[in-house]
Amino acid sequence: MQLEARNLSFRYGKGPLIINNLNLELKSGEILGLSGPSGCGKTTLAKILSGYELPQGGSVKIDGKSIPSKGFNPVQLIFQHPEKAVNPRWQMKKTLNEGWSPDNELLDSLGIEKAWLKRWPNELSGGELQRFCVAKALSPKTRFLIADEITTMLDAITQAQIWNVVLNKARENNIGVLVVSHDQHLINRLCDRVFIGK
């Protein structure tokens, strides 16, 4: 399988083009890095690839077929700030099981404690919440994962823990991963190939 972006262009409102005629492929099982200076549209590209924004020009397809806008999206995005990605009025159990029910094995490998499931989001730290967001996104139906600076706000140990799990799961389920990061060391460590934005 292959996720393909063809001739993408994007602007917010009447602003300048943030993305101009961009082409990108991500194969199943591939770990692709995306880096570039701030303001070059990394986050926007991540959102377009995962269906959060519609491009003004070009298309995003999987194996030449467009991605259905309803139902579970096989391209899942994980955000930088987990605090905003969980509903503050939901107990963590509900958030975790919103898309699918992650098995105990995955929870254990991510270091999610049973006691956390009964907590509210404001009682957990960013690193703990991000583990939940990663578990949610690693559904068996996920074919591609877009990780937009997912460990930028976390300490080095949590960062390494989360990435080890993501890489294992990606290998196991043959998921293609796009690693968006400004951390050159992290990209060198994780990725097979790097795509540089302008």
């Binding site: 404690e113 140990i157 823990q161 080890n164």
Partner: peptide, 23 residues
């Protein structure tokens, strides 16, 4: 030491567990 060794430019090898919070 664990923090230092978990950096991607070093071993990228995390220890298990999480930081206990004030709760």
């Amino acid at each position: 030491k664990a923090l230092w060794n978990a950096l991607p430019q070093n071993d990228f090898n995390p220890i298990d567990g999480f930081q206990p919070s004030h709760i």
